[in-house]
Design a protein around this nucleic acid. Structure first.
Lengths: 216, 216
DNA sequence: ACCTGAACACCGTTCAAGT
DNA sequence: ACCTGAACACCGTTCAAGT
């Protein structure tokens, strides 16, 4: 859009613009060409700062992870774990593209490491041995990723009236003789596809299982 | 590829060919044009059987969900839940595209409903009320989705030697003063990014939390 | 180092037309 | 109903060239 004079580009500016494009047009509508157009440069100008599209994705992810608040101190460790998981969910809801960025790329980068350090150190200081701490970190992370990805996807789906109508139609076409429980619980299933209460339910199950096996 | 004479196309054949293309070229390399080429027809021929690409995705997902075995009878309900979750993970590992198909589209279709009916009916007959059964179903489903998506992604990443080299380099560039726990647990974190043992660890935490709150 | 311009080999989907 | 062919508005990336 805006003409950018020479030598005013930077990886910082590219990342900020890329993030803006992602939040405007959605993760699907995102393209390198779109970012370049927004910056008023040719598509190839971006390759000065990033090796390829995935490399830019990594940078955007780390840029967003910088927004994660530090883990709260002076709380029992299960409460600290709960806070970190909730914060990550909130950040993903505020920036829906983060879900896809986290799911499709391995964790790397300074800010991503900072977040991992926060959760891992809480788990370690709670008395878990190295292997169990790592297992628990991966379990918590993938739980938040799965639950929130689903929540975001269902929110997107329910905002499209046409898709919602087709979904209802396909639900009602199910035989209540063949699938009695699905048909009976259809309203509950729709309600539990997202929300803080649903998230906390799953998180509490994990924490209950976790505290049950820790010595303290 | 093979020339298909007229009137030999069907939605079944399109779905089977689409699945074959997905498993050959991967979910990223998949395209409607590629499926059409494989069938020896023009791209527009597919639109006779599917409204658009998403519609075909739904059909492929349901086609794969048909491969889910029925829940084993004559076992305590936690064991039945465990078996269903493990079966879903195995199916996703055997057909990696299933992970993306499940994560990006709402659940619909006959075979998808069949799988949901299996898990939901186990949860209901264990004594859970309708709302808790639905919450638990969503929690278990999103857990399997998140854990297995992560496992698949990390496997893909580790099979690319170039990506693996860059990942190691970025890990080693982390300051062990700034992120002592991440650096210390790097080997454990790499090891717990997948595998049956890691999956069972998370699943057992959820089941432990669940059995702790059920009356029986 | 930083950026352009043309080109390559692709996409999903619409539209009008044929059988 | 079933399928073609041309067209539209896009992609990411390579390559050679300019400053």
């Amino acid at each position: 859009m805006a003409r950018t004079p020479r030598n005013t580009l930077s990886s910082e500016l590219v990342v900020r613009t890329a993030l803006q494009v992602m939040e405007t047009k959605g993760a699907d509508g995102f393209s390198l060409r779109g970012v370049a157009a927004e910056l008023g440069v040719g598509p190839m100008a971006l390759y000065t700062y990033f090796r390829n599209k995935d490399d830019l994705y990594d940078a955007i992810r780390d840029h967003l992870m910088a927004l994660m608040p530090p883990p709260p101190a002076d709380l029992p460790w299960p409460e600290q774990v709960r806070a970190i998981c909730r914060d990550l969910r909130v950040l993903m809801l505020e920036h829906p593209c983060l879900a896809q960025l986290l799911a499709s790329r391995p964790l790397s980068g300074h800010e991503t490491a900072r977040v991992a350090e926060g959760l891992l150190s809480v788990l370690r200081s709670s008395g878990l041995d190295p292997e169990t701490a790592a297992r628990t970190h991966t379990t918590l992370f993938t739980f938040v990723l799965g639950a929130t990805t689903w929540e975001i996807q269902m929110t997107v789906e329910q905002s499209d009236p046409d898709a919602l109508r087709r979904l209802r139609a396909s639900m009602e076409s199910l035989s209540s003789r063949e699938f009695p429980t699905v048909v009976e619980l259809a309203p509950e299933l729709a309600r539990t596809s997202g929300g803080q209460q649903q998230f906390d339910y799953g998180l509490d199950l994990l924490l209950a299982g976790l505290t049950a096996r820790t010595p303290s």
